[in-house]
Design a protein around this nucleic acid. Structure first.
Lengths: 137, 137
DNA sequence: TGTAATCCCTACTAAATTGATAGGATTAAT
DNA sequence: ATTAATCCTATCAATTTAGTAGGGATTACA
């Protein structure tokens, strides 16, 4: 299941991308328009900023803005920041690899082989999708 | 993340498929070989039996066996039984569709569109994989 | 017929995760 | 100064996950 965090994060990014201007977008505006609990959203946008996807401006008339043009923001990056590893098991994760406790031999593991295929097919989707695609009407 | 339940279930099915004979396979044998807590595994195999994927025989020399040949057991079915919906959000699920509370218009939702692509690509993998493929050495 | 092996079923539990909420500190514009 | 914003930490309730416990029902076979 996709977490609410990811869902909200994607919606927020889309909203910011659609706004388009150079002025920062306030959390309150996003929260209201997308029906997201504001305090919860604050944390999500903070995460995206720390990951370098969003920039922020504090104080009055502050808010969040994209650090790159939407078509340069790849879903692989966004999803990894919001949802974590794309692989369904650590032993097939490219960025967060971890050996299974059980599996004596990874290459003989049926689950491993299956999950590599799932990972690759999901990666293909995320690599070919940018925020620009998402925010197109 | 793939749940342990699913992981164990897939390993157990693979084990049974590899055993191959007509004699039922005991939970204890699977648990030992695959390093799965036996009581936990019992419940998983029960689920698979209730879903019609496994058959069982009670009493001495009892155990579990496949209801179809491995190459007829599709991953779509297995995954749905063990892990639940293949879609990452209910609003793009083929078998467990549910409208989102928030989304006023599904077709305008950026998350929706993205998740349909992920679902389709994952489905393609599961539709083309059978237990027969998994259990090949 | 008795006994051991096996699946079957329900209930319980500890730990982790999720989806928030609360309260305030910090910063900047006016 | 005041106001409007982000930033940060802590807390919490509900849910899910992973596993345990205990026994019931069924069957093979000595």
């Amino acid at each position: 299941m996709l977490s609410k965090k990811t869902k909200y994060g994607l919606k927020a990014l889309t909203f910011i991308a659609r706004t388009g201007d150079d002025v920062p977008v306030q959390v309150s505006a996003i929260a209201k328009s997308e029906q997201i609990p504001q305090k919860f959203l604050e944390g999500i946008l903070l995460t995206l900023r720390k990951a370098g996807i969003l920039g922020s401006k504090k104080g009055k008339h502050g808010g969040y803005y994209l650090r790159s043009t939407p078509s340069d923001i790849k879903m692989t990056d966004v999803m990894r920041v919001l949802e974590g590893p794309i692989a369904m098991v650590p032993c097939v994760s490219l960025n967060y690899y971890e050996k299974c406790d059980d599996c004596p031999d990874e290459h003989a593991c049926s689950v491993h082989k299956l999950m590599i295929e799932v990972r690759d097919s999901t990666l293909k989707v995320f690599r070919n999708k940018t925020l620009g695609d998402l925010s197109q009407v």
